[in-house]
């Protein structure tokens, strides 16, 4: 009896806590959508209005007309898909190398990789641009994809997951004369697919939103990506927030869809297959 009430109170408190957080978290997102439907005057008004006094759905048409978003969309999609596939592949290989295999200098090399995260990235842009131009990659998709396919953040993350797999499993596989390569793809990868999906979505979002590097290495409209289109609404004298938010909202939709798709893949069904030790 007392136990039941206490449980109910815990559940209610949990919901209150999560709901309060969810509201603060949701607010910027909702705000972005609502702002995209206001007119310019209403946006700067203080105190702000929550709902638009007049709903300007035409902002979306205006935003679309401002740049060749169709072409940008195809480019972004291509770069994101190819980039993410390559990144996930390299992350899996490298994480496996650093977690399951032994070779001289392994820990030193891993530490060096970790250390590369500790320098602010924008400092590297000029040198990288020179490298890319020496490779003849200026204004090509190669420049948008290849410099980013080895991401230490993800390698480290997946290594943590791979390390958790019980050693016994590895030796059992060895006894069965299962090669490292087969072991990786038949056992490690399927058993860590939620981690790998998580990495895929984080990387896809990173590719999708990248701005400065794509701008620096491309010149022609046929190579440019969506995030560059957003600059169209910002000038040094002022910003068309309603159009910027409309374009940002459009930009976000594919990522949310991707998340919902992968989330179901991550959560449902796999819970029972955990074989962690």
């Amino acid at each position: 009896m007392g136990d039941g009430i206490r449980r109910k109170i815990t559940v209610v408190l949990t919901h209150v806590f999560l709901m309060a957080g969810a509201m603060i978290t949701l607010l910027p997102f909702v705000w972005m959508i609502l702002t995209s439907l206001k007119d310019a005057g209403e946006i700067v008004q203080m105190p702000p209005t929550f709902f638009p006094s007049v709903w300007h759905f035409d902002n979306y048409l205006k935003a679309f007309a401002a740049a060749p978003f169709g072409q940008y969309f195809i480019n972004t999609l291509f770069v994101t898909i190819v980039g993410t596939i390559l990144t996930v592949f390299i992350t899996i290989l490298t994480a496996f190398g650093f977690s399951r295999l032994r070779f001289p200098g392994r820990d030193v090399i891993f530490s060096i990789l970790l250390a590369t995260l500790m320098i602010p990235g924008e400092m590297l842009i000029i040198t990288n641009f020179v490298t890319v131009s020496k490779l003849g990659w200026v204004d090509t998709r190669e420049a948008l994809i290849f410099p980013w396919i080895a991401n230490v953040f993800y390698i480290y993350l997946l290594r943590q997951f791979f390390m958790q797999m019980p050693d016994a499993l590895y030796y059992a596989a060895k006894v069965d004369a299962c090669s490292d390569w087969r072991y990786l793809w038949k056992i490690m990868v399927p058993n860590n697919r939620h981690a790998i999906s998580t990495i895929a979505i984080l990387n896809a979002i990173g590719c999708w939103n990248a701005f400065l590097w794509p701008l620096i290495v491309t010149n022609s409209e046929s190579k440019r990506v969506l995030s560059i289109g957003l600059v169209r609404f910002q000038t040094e004298a002022g910003t068309h927030f309603e159009l910027l938010m409309a374009a940002s909202a459009i930009l976000v939709v594919p990522m949310i869809i991707l998340y919902l798709l992968l989330r179901n893949q991550i959560i449902s069904g796999v819970t029972r297959s955990g074989i962690k030790g």
């Binding site: 842009i125 000029i126 641009f129 020496k134 400065l212 701008l215 620096i216 010149n219 910002q234």
Partner: peptide, 22 residues
């Protein structure tokens, strides 16, 4: 015409192009 973003972006890009001679 090639749009290179805002002033800050254009400035960075020009700087990188000086280094790469482009």
């Amino acid at each position: 015409l090639v749009n290179q973003g805002g002033y800050g972006d254009l400035s960075k890009k020009l700087m990188a192009s000086v280094a790469a001679d482009t």
